[in-house]
Computed example of a mutant assay.
Amino acid sequence: MLKRILSYLIPVILYKKKSKISKSIEITWNNGELVMDSENANYSYGSLQRILKLGLSSIGFEKIVKMEHVLVLGVAGGSVIKTLVGDIAYKGKITGVEIDPEIIKIANQYFNLKDISQLSIVIEDAFEFVLKTKDQYDLIIIDVFQDTKMPSFLYQSYFTDRICSLLNTKGFILFNTMLLDKKQNLLNETYISSFKKENFSIHSIPRVEKHNELIVIERMN
């Protein structure tokens, strides 16, 4: 409790570990919240949880509650999963894909991710998983980062075509992006302007928590 109170003055690091994939993973009390961070970015809880909750709200909690299967690409500490289960009371199946096994071990220890019975975790590269999965989903959440960097495959047309093909009718994709420079801004602008798919709509929620932009894709029918 004392560390939590002190965190309103300065961040209090509880745990820090090196990872081959994520380089550095920290568990920190920050402004009274237990968060997971990489070296330069918030990975779970804190601002990231607020960002993705806003995106889910834009889709509509009442729609999400009725969904049967949600895919989360990039689990980290599992904050968006906790939002789905805790805040939205989602009861359906959740498949979480995470490339870094160390992050899942830490998420289980500090955030009790293992206690969510409807959650199945797959340790695999998100791109490889998307290529192989035979399931269809009502909601696909893309939150794939390596510190502050997004893998280039996220913007490739082949990947976009594939995830769109995995959506059920009336399904949604919620894509979290980070805009730190003009190049990244242009990348998002090009991605949105060049998205031309029949029966799909796309829009963005710009400048969430200063550096993030959410892209929302909906399959109309």
Score class of each variant (00 low, 15 high):
residue 1 M to V: 00
residue 2 L to I: 10
residue 2 L to F: 04
residue 4 R to N: 13
residue 5 I to Y: 10
residue 6 L to W: 15
residue 9 L to M: 07
residue 12 V to D: 03
residue 13 I to L: 14
residue 14 L to Y: 02
residue 15 Y to I: 04
residue 17 K to M: 15
residue 18 K to Q: 11
residue 19 S to L: 13
residue 22 S to V: 01
residue 23 K to R: 13
residue 28 T to F: 03
residue 29 W to P: 11
residue 30 N to M: 12
residue 35 V to F: 05
residue 38 S to N: 09
residue 44 S to I: 02
residue 46 G to W: 00
residue 46 G to I: 04
residue 46 G to S: 00
residue 47 S to E: 08
residue 50 R to S: 09
residue 52 L to G: 03
residue 56 L to I: 03
residue 56 L to N: 03
residue 56 L to C: 01
residue 62 E to G: 08
residue 74 G to K: 03
residue 77 G to V: 05
residue 80 V to R: 12
residue 80 V to C: 15
residue 80 V to L: 14
residue 82 K to Q: 15
residue 82 K to I: 07
residue 89 A to E: 01
residue 89 A to I: 12
residue 90 Y to S: 10
residue 91 K to E: 15
residue 93 K to Y: 07
residue 95 T to K: 06
residue 96 G to P: 13
residue 97 V to D: 05
residue 97 V to T: 10
residue 98 E to M: 14
residue 99 I to T: 08
residue 101 P to D: 05
residue 103 I to P: 00
residue 110 Y to H: 05
residue 111 F to H: 13
residue 116 I to V: 09
residue 116 I to R: 02
residue 117 S to P: 00
residue 119 L to W: 03
residue 123 I to M: 04
residue 126 A to T: 09
residue 127 F to P: 03
residue 132 K to C: 02
residue 133 T to M: 12
residue 133 T to Q: 02
residue 135 D to W: 06
residue 137 Y to T: 07
residue 139 L to V: 07
residue 139 L to G: 04
residue 144 V to F: 09
residue 145 F to P: 12
residue 151 P to G: 14
residue 151 P to Y: 06
residue 154 L to R: 10
residue 158 Y to L: 08
residue 159 F to H: 06
residue 159 F to Y: 06
residue 161 D to M: 07
residue 162 R to E: 11
residue 166 L to I: 01
residue 167 L to P: 00
residue 167 L to I: 02
residue 173 I to T: 04
residue 175 F to S: 01
residue 175 F to N: 03
residue 183 K to L: 14
residue 185 N to A: 11
residue 186 L to S: 12
residue 186 L to I: 12
residue 190 T to H: 10
residue 191 Y to C: 07
residue 197 K to Q: 06
residue 197 K to N: 00
residue 199 N to G: 06
residue 203 H to M: 05
residue 204 S to H: 01
residue 205 I to M: 00
residue 206 P to T: 09
residue 207 R to N: 14
residue 209 E to M: 10
residue 213 E to Q: 11
residue 213 E to L: 11
residue 213 E to I: 14
residue 213 E to R: 08
residue 216 V to L: 01
residue 218 E to N: 04
residue 218 E to K: 01
